[in-house]
C-alpha cells in the first residue's frame, strides 16, 4: 500500500515537472521567436527604401502617396521590388501585417523548421500569381491568433520595394494536417495563411482574396 502511494506521488510529480519544463520551453521558444521576428522586421524595414511609411498602414491608415506611385516607377524598380531582401543569408520576400491582430512579420522565401521558428515562411505560390500560401508557427507573436480573424478583416503584404497588396479575409477554416491538396489546389485565394491548431493535428487556415493594389 505504501509503495502504491509513493508510486502515484512520484509519477504525478514527474509528470508535473515534465509538463512544467515543456511549458517553460514553449514560452522560451515563443519569446525567442518574437525577438527574432522583431529584429528581422527592423532589419527588413531598414533595408527597404520606401518602407518607413508602409508599416504605418498596420493601423489601417491611408497609405501615403510615396507608396502609391506605382505608375511612375521604372521597370528596374519594379523588378528590384520583386527581389527578396537578404538578411543574415536568408531571403525575405515581404512583410505581412495583420492590423486587427497587431502582427507584422517578415516572410521568408524558403521554408524549414528552423526558419519557421524565426518568421513565417512561404510555403507555396507567389504574390504575382495570386497563390501565395504562408505558414507560420502558432506562437502568439506569429500566427497564434489567426483563428480569431473574421471575414472582412484586412491583411497587407508589402514586398521589398514597398509595394503593398491588400487582401480581405474571406473565410477561416480548419484543415486536416495531411490536407496538402486542399491547401494548395483551390484556386481563387490570392493569399492563404495557416498554422497548427492547439493540438497540432489540424491547420487553422485563413483564406484571403485580393482587395486592391495600392
Amino acid at each position: 500500500m505504501k509503495k502504491r502511494a509513493a508510486f502515484l506521488i512520484g509519477t504525478g510529480c514527474v509528470l508535473i515537472a515534465v509538463s512544467a519544463s515543456l511549458a517553460v520551453n514553449n514560452q522560451l521558444e515563443s519569446l525567442k521567436a518574437e525577438k527574432s521576428a522583431e529584429l528581422l522586421t527592423e532589419a527588413f524595414i531598414s533595408r527597404t527604401t520606401v518602407f518607413e511609411t508602409s508599416v504605418t498602414e498596420m493601423t489601417n491608415e491611408p497609405v501615403p502617396e510615396i507608396i502609391a506611385d506605382n505608375e511612375i516607377r521604372g521597370a528596374d524598380e519594379q523588378a528590384s521590388a520583386k527581389k527578396p531582401i537578404i538578411i543574415d543569408g536568408q531571403e525575405f520576400i515581404g512583410l505581412l501585417s495583420i492590423p486587427s491582430l497587431g502582427v507584422s512579420l517578415p516572410v521568408n522565401n524558403d521554408i524549414s523548421y528552423p526558419l519557421l521558428k524565426m518568421t513565417p515562411c512561404r510555403y507555396f505560390g507567389s504574390v504575382d500569381s495570386d497563390s501565395l500560401i504562408i505558414a507560420a508557427h502558432n506562437y502568439n507573436s506569429h500566427f497564434g491568433k489567426i483563428g480569431m480573424l473574421k471575414p472582412g478583416d484586412r491583411v497587407n503584404f508589402t514586398n521589398a520595394g514597398g509595394l503593398i497588396e491588400t487582401y480581405a479575409i474571406a473565410e477561416v477554416l480548419t484543415l486536416p494536417g495531411d490536407a496538402v491538396d486542399e491547401m494548395i489546389k483551390p484556386e481563387g485565394w490570392a493569399l492563404t495563411l495557416f498554422t497548427c491548431t492547439y493540438s497540432g493535428t489540424e491547420r487553422i487556415t485563413v483564406r484571403c482574396v485580393k482587395e486592391e493594389r495600392i
Binding site: 505558414a135 495531411d178 492547439y198
Partner: peptide, 10 residues
Amino acid sequence: DLPQTGLNRL
C-alpha cells in the same frame, strides 16, 4: 503532410 507549426501545448 503539411508542416507541423504547433507548439507542444496539448
